[in-house]
């Protein structure tokens, strides 16, 4: 089943600074909720292990993360897919844009447009919860990211 969400967060650093952090595996790993490992496999690819709990189903997803449409420092597309074994699968992506700040402000604005798809037991048992979990996960990621930017 599919879901989409969009949002934006105001960040305290410049687009150039944020861009570097958006491409830093250590930052991404710290910000992705439940991320246990994130290892670079190529210039734009990572292998990842992420632990997620959706309603009654708790699963460890093993998969890959790929960065594409790189347009420094304006944005990129981050997409990933993972197999959670019996729990099913999850795949999705986000188009991330870094926009100039509102007039009179510092920093920049990060906007995101996320779509996600899950299947298997997660969809069967957690269907009603997925929208909430997905939104919370996205919020957590971007809040974590904002914190990471603030911390420099």
């Amino acid at each position: 089943m599919a879901m989409t969400m969009t949002g934006e967060v105001a960040l305290s650093a410049s687009r150039e600074t944020v861009w570097v952090k958006l491409n830093d595996p250590a930052v991404l790993k710290a910000c992705i909720p439940g991320c246990e490992t994130l290892d670079k496999t190529s210039d734009t690819g990572f292998s990842a292990v992420v632990k997620l709990k959706i309603g009654p189903v708790s699963a460890t997803f093993k998969g890959s993360v790929e960065l594409s449409d790189l347009d420094p420092p304006n944005g990129y597309r981050i997409s990933g897919q993972g197999e959670g074994g019996v729990a099913g699968f999850a795949k999705g992506g986000a188009t991330v844009r870094l926009l100039p700040p509102a007039e009179g402000n510092d920093g920049c604005i990060l906007s995101y447009d996320v779509e996600a798809n899950v299947g298997g037991k997660i969809a069967q048992l957690g269907a009603r919860l997925i929208d909430g979990v997905a939104k919370k996960t996205a919020d957590q990621f971007f809040n974590n990211f904002a914190e990471a930017v603030k911390a420099g």
């Binding site: 599919a2 969809a123 069967q124 048992l125 269907a127």
Partner: peptide, 14 residues
């Protein structure tokens, strides 16, 4: 079933 073919009524919760 949702459009991707997932059965979203697969327990007594749904």
């Amino acid at each position: 079933y949702d459009s991707s073919g997932q059965l979203v009524t697969a327990s007594y919760m749904d």
